[in-house]
């Protein structure tokens, strides 16, 4: 198959990366674009870039951070292109099996872009404030502030159902 894994630096095989991080990339792209189809385009773009740059990646941590960073960049580029071409940005939130899932997801998706990005990275990817700050190229205090305000907004949206935990 493609590319032999470098055991010495513990860089995973491309197949392993695709298997392990595909969902992470797609979900981050989905919450940022709020459109599943756009997110799939971005997913393809991100992994094609990964194929081209596979030799430059060092280890698994680097791979994950690289994927998140490139996904954010690709999303920004995609959204700018859509905006420049005056194409509509329809909300096409994927349907969920449980209404409560949809309610929470829609609440996050309704946040401004910078808030829902940090919420997603913090809640779903489990990234620490420091790591989010590094990936978004901003200060930790800015990330903390964004998280705080995002939670406040979610509390307003979800009302009594909001649980800060």
């Amino acid at each position: 198959m493609f590319l032999v894994s470098s055991v010495s630096n513990q860089k995973p095989l491309l197949e392993e990366i695709v298997e392990k991080y595909s969902d992470m990339v797609l979900r981050l792209a989905t919450i940022r674009t709020k459109n599943k189809h756009y997110a799939e385009d971005i997913y393809s773009d991100v992994f094609l870039r990964l194929i081209k740059n596979y030799d430059k990646l060092r280890d698994e941590n680097h791979v994950k951070a690289w994927l998140i960073r490139v996904t954010i960049n690709c999303t920004n580029t995609y959204m700018k292109k859509m905006s420049r071409d005056n194409l509509p940005l329809p909300d096409n939130i994927p349907s969920f099996s449980e209404p409560v899932f949809s309610e929470v997801y829609q609440a996050v998706a309704s946040l401004p872009d910078k808030y829902r990005t940090v919420i997603h990275m913090h809640f779903y990817d489990g990234l620490a404030v420091k790591e989010i700050s590094r990936l978004l190229a901003q200060t930790e205090s800015a990330t903390k502030m964004q998280l705080k305000r995002a939670k406040e907004k979610l509390k307003v949206i979800l009302g009594d159902d909001f649980n800060d935990k």
Partner: peptide, 25 residues
């Protein structure tokens, strides 16, 4: 179930199809 858990559950329903993974490989 906390909102955090609910959000995780919601995201777990968003996944890449095997066809897309195969296409990438």
């Amino acid at each position: 179930m906390t909102n955090n858990e609910l959000y995780r559950m919601a995201n777990s329903e968003i996944s890449v199809s095997e066809a897309m993974k195969t296409e990438i490989l």
